[in-house]
Measured scan of single mutants.
Amino acid sequence: QEELVKAFKALLKEEKFSSQGEIVAALQEQGFDNINQSKVSRMLTKFGAVRTRNAKMEMVYCLPAELGV
């Protein structure tokens, strides 16, 4: 569980995922086979993730800066 949270936060820091499906796929690539869209959705809510525009003006998920991840 701890490893999943770390990987999840690291992915969001990249600010390149525009959908929950993309986050699920990226986590599965890292070996988290039991991850699915509903789990990702709950984690996004739990950590207060928001959708914002990145440098390329794409809408992407990211974590609020005050979490200091």
Rank of each mutant, 00 (worst) to 15 (best):
E2H: 12
S18I: 08
E2Q: 11
N36W: 04
I35A: 06
K13F: 08
K39E: 14
L63T: 03
E3C: 15
C62S: 13
N34H: 11
Q30V: 07
G31L: 02
S41K: 14
V69W: 03
Q20E: 15
G31R: 03
N54S: 04
G68F: 03
C62K: 10
E29V: 10
M57N: 15
F17V: 04
S18Q: 13
A49L: 02
K46N: 11
E66I: 07
V24N: 02
K13I: 10
N54D: 04
S41H: 11
C62Y: 08
Q28M: 11
A10M: 10
E58Q: 12
D33A: 14
R42K: 14
R51T: 07
E3W: 08
T45K: 15
A26T: 04
V50G: 08
G68E: 15
R42D: 15
C62N: 05
E3N: 12
R42M: 14
L63M: 07
A26D: 02
L67V: 14
L27K: 01
I23R: 00
D33L: 13
F32C: 01
K13W: 11
S41M: 10
G31F: 02
D33V: 14
K6A: 13
E2N: 11
A25I: 12
S38I: 12
S38N: 13
L12Q: 00
Y61H: 02
M59P: 06
N34S: 12
C62I: 13
A25E: 10
R51S: 05
E58D: 07
S38D: 15
L67P: 14
Q20P: 14
V24P: 00
A10N: 11
A10L: 11
R51H: 08
A55L: 06
L27Y: 00
L11D: 00
V5G: 07
L67Q: 13
A26E: 07
G48D: 04
K39Q: 15
G48H: 08
A65P: 15
K56V: 07
R42T: 11
V5E: 15
M59V: 09
S38R: 14
K16R: 15
D33T: 14
E29A: 14
R53F: 09
N36D: 14
A7I: 07
R42C: 10
F8T: 03
G68S: 09
K56R: 10
E15N: 07
G68D: 14
K56L: 09
V24E: 04
K46Y: 15
E22P: 03
K13G: 08
V5I: 13
F17M: 11
K13T: 08
R51I: 13
M43Q: 01
N54G: 05
G21A: 14
Y61C: 02
I23D: 00
